[in-house]
């Protein structure tokens, strides 16, 4: 009994971050799965509406944001690895530099998203235009809220780095933030093809 509890504790010690965020992210995965299912159901019900709307969607914005998010994930990994060093070897400047670059990517994502929304609204396409645009604004909007939330967590880690870097609590905190940020990236890896890349091919 003791040995199995010890083994579980060792596994928890080895795990990046704590169990709470792993659970939260998994629940978020289930929520997005349901959104994807409703999207697919609506697409099956209104194939012509979805095909016409998706064909008019420029994938350049989506692709640029994919590249920006993947790059931000690299900076996040570098920050997490820098924070995992022993207290005597921890490089606070490296942590802060990578977190700042991560925030810069997040800002670039936000600017790109706002320009994209502005173009669509200027063309007369809002959330009420049709079923596809309802999903387009809802799905990418909820994802954008995740980006904003993640950016807030990253800024918190940035602000606390000088005083807390090197501690076990800070390492856990930045690993939890990293997990959430990579999940934001992971979600986009499916939203991007679903919204932007399948357009124009729905009917061959």
């Amino acid at each position: 009994m003791h040995s199995s509890l010890d083994a579980h504790q060792r596994a928890l010690d080895r795990q990046p971050g704590t169990n709470g965020p792993w659970t939260f992210v998994f629940i978020d995965m289930i929520v997005f799965s349901m959104i994807f299912m409703v999207f697919l159901s609506e697409r099956a019900r209104l194939p012509d509406v979805f095909a016409a709307a998706q064909a008019g969607l420029p994938f350049g914005f989506g692709m640029a944001n994919t590249l920006v998010l993947l790059t931000s994930s690299l900076f996040m990994v570098e920050a997490v690895h820098a924070a995992a060093k022993a207290p005597a070897a921890v490089d606070v400047a490296r942590i802060r530099r990578n977190l700042a670059l991560c925030v810069a990517c997040s800002v670039a994502f936000g600017i790109n998203k706002i320009i994209e929304y502005s173009h669509k609204i200027a063309e007369g396409h809002g959330p009420a235009t049709n079923s596809f645009y309802s999903f387009y604004f809802f799905m990418t909007g909820v994802h954008f809220l995740h980006v904003l939330g993640g950016t807030g967590f990253i800024l918190h880690c940035f602000a606390r780095a000088r005083e807390q870097a090197g501690s076990e609590a800070y390492r856990r905190k930045i690993e939890n933030v990293g997990l959430f940020w990579h999940f934001v990236d992971l979600l986009w890896l499916f939203i991007f093809p679903l919204i932007y890349l399948t357009g124009g091919h729905a009917h061959g």
Partner: peptide
């Protein structure tokens, strides 16, 4: 998308070190 997701999960999220 699935292959990229696996790369992100294994290399960035480090799911191999999780429970």
């Amino acid at each position: 998308a699935v292959l990229k997701g696996q790369l992100v999960a294994v290399n960035f999220m480090e799911v191999g070190r999780a429970l």
